[in-house]
């Protein structure tokens, strides 16, 4: 299979991820959308690495995974803090800061 197809797949995944962020009220799901976007980028990196015939892109993907993991930690911590206070993880509910 032509590696460029994986790039298209990555783009589609990126789009799906961002759609999740925009459409899902659940903070966790939205956050998963973000992770999906990051992984779409990873997929793109790896595919391009393959296209260019070198490993740099794959190495980059590892970096990204580590960073994404750290991000998950912080993200979940924040979401949990919000949940403990509000008993809800709806993204629409905390909207006191506006205007």
């Amino acid at each position: 299979m032509d590696p460029i197809s994986f790039v298209y797949l990555a783009a589609i995944l990126f789009a799906i991820g961002s759609a999740a962020v925009l459409t899902r009220r659940n903070a966790i799901v939205a956050f998963m959308g973000v992770e999906l976007m990051l992984n779409a980028a990873n997929l793109a990196l790896v595919s391009f690495s393959r296209i260019h015939g070198e490993v740099d892109g794959q190495v980059m993907a590892f970096f990204v995974m580590v960073v994404a993991a750290a991000e998950v930690v912080v993200g979940l911590a924040i979401i949990i803090a919000v949940f403990r206070t509000r008993q809800s993880i709806s993204l629409d509910e905390p909207a006191e800061l506006r205007g």
């Binding site: 990126f14 991820g17 961002s18 962020v21 903070a27 939205a30 956050f31 973000v34 976007m37 990051l38 779409a40 980028a41 991000e71 912080v74 993200g75 924040i78 979401i79 803090a81 919000v82 206070t85 993204l91 905390p94 909207a95 006191e96 800061l97």
Partner: peptide
């Protein structure tokens, strides 16, 4: 908390960009 959640989610979103 609200500020943090928004900042985080949008920050992550833009990081993905």
């Amino acid at each position: 908390h609200e500020a943090s959640l928004k900042y985080f989610l949008l920050g992550a979103f833009s990081s993905a960009f």
